[in-house]
């Protein structure tokens, strides 16, 4: 049993932040790695990439958007409640070494994961330009935290209610034109966003890393449910990822695979409402 020590509602309650007491995991987990949690006895196992970690306090931070049955169930928990199972660290950590200028792009809840990666990139001594985006002002998360750890921060909203109006790809194009020293682009967010970022960086061959979030069960490479095609080769996201070279990832396949349980997800929600 893992205690939720702090709960924070963000983005009008659609995005939730939990600090979970998991001292052993907190000692080990690195940026880019994820945990799998199961809320209760009848719950499913869901992977969530860790947004932050407090080694001394022994807590890990997860930030998730409420999209289905399990995330709704998680939202219903309060500080002091327990999550039945949390297992980690899983996956390979983000490769954080000093390379120069890094552009970090985050969209939606992807900003949460990006936060942990940027922190690691910054600690490694890189110059980090962060571009974060959301649909509207209220949906944007972690702008203060990102501002603190980034050398430059650009905020984008689809409707222009905060920061600049437009998509995260717009400032990326501008930066690529202006600066020739960008060594790495890290893009974490919706599949469509990562795909579009990769399309842009492909032209100038800037190495682009993306963090994928396919369907997963055990997270140890045992089930193969998280298969993604990278460079024409099938990889298991849970053990080979979750970060991959974005230029090699088959996003179309991933997009379609993630829709596999659309019907069951609806059924599950309907069942719990009844």
């Amino acid at each position: 049993m893992f205690e939720i020590v702090r709960k924070q509602e963000m983005a009008k309650g659609t995005i939730i932040r939990f600090d979970i007491a998991a001292p052993k995991i907190a000692q080990k987990i690195l940026a880019g790695q994820f945990v799998i949690l199961r809320v209760n006895e009848t719950g499913e196992r869901i992977p969530i990439t860790v947004a932050d970690v407090d080694k001394f306090g022994g807590t890990i931070t997860i930030i998730f958007q409420v999209v289905g049955k399990t995330t709704a169930l998680l939202r219903s928990l309060d500080a002091g409640n327990f999550i039945k199972d949390v297992v980690g660290p899983l996956g390979k950590p983000a490769h954080a070494e000093k390379i120069g200028t890094v552009v970090a792009i985050g969209g939606g809840t992807g900003i949460a994961i990006l936060h942990h990666v940027v922190k690691a990139m910054k600690e490694a001594g890189n110059f980090v330009i962060s571009i974060i985006g959301a649909r509207e002002k209220d949906m944007l998360i972690l702008q203060d935290e990102m501002n603190l750890i980034s050398d430059e921060l650009v905020i984008m909203t689809d409707d222009g209610s905060f920061g600049q109006r437009g998509f995260v790809t717009d400032p990326l194009k501008k930066y690529i034109q202006e600066r020739s020293d960008i060594k790495l682009v890290y893009a974490i967010g919706p599949i469509i966003m990562m795909k579009n970022v990769c399309k842009i960086t492909e032209k100038t061959k800037i190495k682009t890393m993306v963090s994928l979030n396919p369907v997963m069960i055990d997270g140890t490479g045992m089930c193969g449910g998280c298969r993604v095609k990278v460079g024409g080769v099938t990889q298991f996201c849970c053990v080979d990822g979750p970060d991959f070279d974005g230029h090699a990832v088959d996003f179309d396949e991933l997009e379609k695979r993630n829709l596999m349980y659309l019907k069951q997800e609806k059924d599950s929600l309907l069942f719990s409402i009844r």
């Binding site: 196992r45 059924d267 309907l270």
Partner: peptide
């Protein structure tokens, strides 16, 4: 995950 008892259990069958 006992998906055969979905939706009583949350894992999709």
């Amino acid at each position: 995950m006992k998906a055969y008892r979905f939706p009583e259990y949350d894992t999709p069958k």
